[in-house]
Structures are given as structure tokens and as C-alpha cells.
Nucleic acid binder design. Structure first.
Lengths: 244, 244
DNA sequence: AAACTATTGATTGCATACAATCCGTCAAGT
DNA sequence: ACTTGACGGATTGTATGCAATCAATAGTTT
């Protein structure tokens, strides 16, 4: 973060993207807050052009919504939005788990098992290692998707996992939930190792849907208190469906 | 098209996007062809800035691949890419069909039936109405996704349907295939109207996977001869997976 | 002749200046 | 008092100029 040296290999657009995305994921920008290009540009120490590029990308990934001439606002998530995302994840990742069970070789299973094992200590040192645990969890799911061998499903599922509200939700996990989650992972490794597609599918579906339950249980005030004043708690519904 | 009047409500970026996308979908740009910002800007009568924006969006939607400092090339589709897309579509849209069967009301079914019916004459006047048929087909699938009520799945499936190679593939349909496709649609309407989730799922899965079979049957020379010289048929594999 | 290096041309990436648009405010009219 | 209209500030959208980077070519060396 203190590395503002000029020898930055990444493009300015990439820096802007990471900067804004992290600020959203970490909750520094409140849901519903309007992001002006100028301010973001100043913060990331680039001009407005790469910031615009970053914002378009973030919009396509679901982090912000932007309307012509009105700019970008941090996207809020209604109950239904969250349910839709988890439902889609459950559909895709359970199918992927089945494919993984079919395709996995010995090395794949070995790797998965190692990853699952590595998560256990992270789960115990609960309160502060949320980020590390979340990262490890993402890597585990990513590995299963990779083994499944469908790039489209991999992209979609990973994008969903990266949406900010997921990371926040891990903070709400009770130790009991974490234990069940770890158990799920072990079961997944076993099922995939045994080549039992149906079992892998079912476990993955349950794994994700139960996570959805926990998250939704945290209630509508899932907005994390960020490092800044939180300019007036926004109404729970920023984008209402136009009834269509 | 002749409307280059200055009273164009759309933004320049939107015009650039449509311009480039249409040129790709229609095959005017060959697979593997390199697209330079300057040329595209001139063609769409805008500056390079909105063209860049359009290219990023097209990349996120899978029409082009772009690498830093190297620009954009029209994306090619390997056998596996196509299989992945159809597999994912089958997974999502079959699930959506099931949801639609659960959620549809009388008006929804009415609308679907009308759309299915309207496609029949388009199918008969086969050779030239490919575009109209393709549009109607897209609308039919889109309506089912809308009824299903999961925005994420809707977005994903529609994006996949819009990928160029699909449109091209319709040109390859034999009348026999079209008849089966129409029959599938009628069956879908019936199943959804009856609230039979399993049936709707199964029919949709078969509908999409059989379309995949037909498409793949057209072989690797699916690259349509465009209106321009086709600068040397590119090798079938432009983007090879880095083996990971 | 082959391989490696330097240079040139073209293209992308970025910054900045300018134009178009939107939103809030205030004034005037009904 | 309420609506309507216009003005002003701020923000987004677009164009253009310049710097950074890459690819290809020519030239040099082994």
C-alpha cells in the first residue's frame, strides 16, 4: 500500500480497479454511496480515464451500478439478489462438483485434501483470520471448479464468490457453522476421491445453500461498519426492480 | 443505418459497441482478426476513447480477447469452448425452465404460447429469415428466464445466447432440426403451463444439448466467409490454454 | 549464413482539455 | 402557495496529444 513507486508493472487501470474494488469489498464505501470519478482518480493516483475503465469492469462484475450521466453507486443487495446469487452458485458448483468427481485424478484429490486440511487451523484462530480463511475457502472451491474442467462455470462461480457481501458474511459465522463447513469440505474430498458424482453434487449443494441460510440469518443490517462515518444508513432498497 | 444525424440520443460508446459487435456477429470480422482502435473509431465515426470502452465490454462478454499493449482480436471458439457454453446453458436454462413451470401464471403461459406460435411461419420461410427466427428464438428463451425469476441466471444465459457463433449456427439448421426445435418449444409451453417442473427441465435440457450437437456437426470451418478478403485463414487455435 | 542487437514504425495506455448533460436552487408567473 | 422555467455548479462523456510499449526490419557481428 505504501508502494507508490513509479516502477509499478501493472497498468494504471489495473491499479484503479484493485483500489476501488478493495474499498468496496472492505466496506470503506458504504452501500448506495456515489463514487465520483475524480475522487477515485485522486485516491488511486491516476487520471480519470483508467478509473472509468475500472468502473465499467466493476459494473460488469456486479460491484457497482452505473447509469449514463449519473455515475456509479455501490451496489446494494436485496434479500432476493442474495438468494439469486446463492441459488445460481449452488446450481453451478454442485454440477461442477459432480464433474470433478468424474474427472479428478489422484494428484487432484491429493491437492484438494491438502487444501481442506490447511483450512482447519485457520478456522480455529477464528476472529482475526477471517480474511485468510475466506481466501483458503475460495481457493478450495476454485480448485474443484478447475478440476471440473468447464471454464464458463469456473468464471461465473468465481465471480460470484468475489462479490463483496460474501466476504463480509464470513465474519458472521459461528464456530458451529465453521465446523460444519469444514466437515462439508472433507466430505467433498472423499466423494470426489471416490468418484461418486451424486454424492459430491449433493454435498456441494447443501454446503452452499446452508451458507446462504447463515448469511441471510445475519439480517438486513449486513452493512459492515466501515472505517468512515457511514453517511446515513441507506434504505435497504436502492435498486428496485422496475416491475417489468 | 443512414441515420448519422447529430441527434443521436445514444452515447458514442454505445454506438461503437453496437457497431463492433454487429460486425463480429455478422462475420464481417474474421475470427482471429486483429481490431485496431483507430480503424474501429473511424468506422463508427467516434474517437478512440469510446471505442476502447466498447472493446473492454466486448471482452467481458466474450466476443474478443485483449491483451495489454497488444490490442483486441476476434475470439475464436474451440470445440471445447462451444461444448462448455452449451453445457452451461443447458444447466442454467433447464433449471430456469423448472422454475418457470413453478412460477408461471396464466398470462405468462399465454404469452409464451403466442411467442412459440409466432415462430412457426418464420421457420417455414427458411433461408432468408434466419435473423428473424434467431431473434424470436432468443425472445422465447428470454421470456422463460424472466418467468423463472432469477436475474443472475437470466443475465448469464442471455449473454451466452448472444455470442456470435450461435447466430451463425442457425444458418446450418436443416428443416428437420427446425421442426424438432419448434416441437420442443410447444412441449415447453405445455409443461410450463401444467406446472410440471421435471418435464420442463428435461425438455429444455434436450432442446439445448441437441442444438449443441447440430452446431458441432457443422464442423470446424464454421467461420463464415465475410464481405472482406479474410486475411489468411487463421489456425483453429488462437488462444491455447496455458496448461495451467 | 545464422544469430543477435539496434532502430523504426505503429499501436496501445494515459492524461488533460473541452463539450454535453444532469441536478438542485431560485425566481417569476399563475 | 404551487408550479414552471431558467440559471449555475458539478459530473460525466468525448476528443486529442503525448508517452510507453511492442513488433518487425535492417544492420552488425560471429
Amino acid at each position: 500500500m505504501a508502494d507508490d513507486s513509479k516502477t509499478d508493472r501493472r497498468t494504471a487501470a489495473e491499479r484503479a480497479y484493485v483500489s476501488v474494488r478493495d474499498s468496496i469489498s472492505s466496506g470503506r464505501f458504504a452501500v448506495g454511496e456515489r463514487l465520483t470519478e475524480g475522487a477515485l482518480a485522486e485516491e488511486a493516483k491516476v487520471s480519470r480515464t483508467p478509473v472509468r475503465e475500472a468502473l465499467r469492469r466493476l459494473a460488469s462484475e456486479g460491484f457497482v451500478t452505473l447509469s449514463p450521466h449519473a455515475g456509479a453507486i455501490v451496489k446494494g443487495w436485496s434479500e432476493k439478489d442474495v438468494r439469486d446469487v446463492f441459488e445460481t452458485r449452488a446450481l453451478i458448483e454442485s454440477h461442477a462438483a459432480g464433474l470433478a468427481a468424474r474427472h479428478a485424478n489422484a494428484a487432484d484429490v491429493q491437492r484438494l485434501a491438502a487444501m481442506a486440511e490447511r483450512m482447519e487451523p485457520l478456522a480455529r484462530s477464528s476472529p482475526r483470520e477471517v480474511m485468510a480463511y475466506s481466501e483458503a475457502n475460495r481457493a478450495f472451491h476454485a480448485e474443484i471448479l478447475r478440476i471440473a474442467g468447464n471454464l464458463r462455470m469456473e468464471e461465473i462461480a468465481l465471480n460470484f464468490m468475489d462479490l463483496g457481501f460474501l466476504v463480509r458474511s464470513y465474519a458472521q459465522f459461528e464456530t458451529e457453522d465453521v465446523q460444519r463447513s469444514l466437515s462439508d469440505h472433507r466430505q467433498l474430498v472423499t466423494a470426489i476421491g471416490a468418484g461418486d458424482e451424486r454424492c459430491a453434487e449433493a454435498v456441494m449443494r447443501g454446503h452452499i445453500l446452508s451458507a446462504a441460510l447463515i448469511f441471510r440469518g445475519t439480517g438486513p443490517e449486513a452493512a459492515p461498519r466501515g472505517t468512515r462515518p457511514l453517511p446515513a444508513a441507506p434504505t435497504p432498497e436502492h435498486e428496485k426492480e422496475p416491475s417489468r
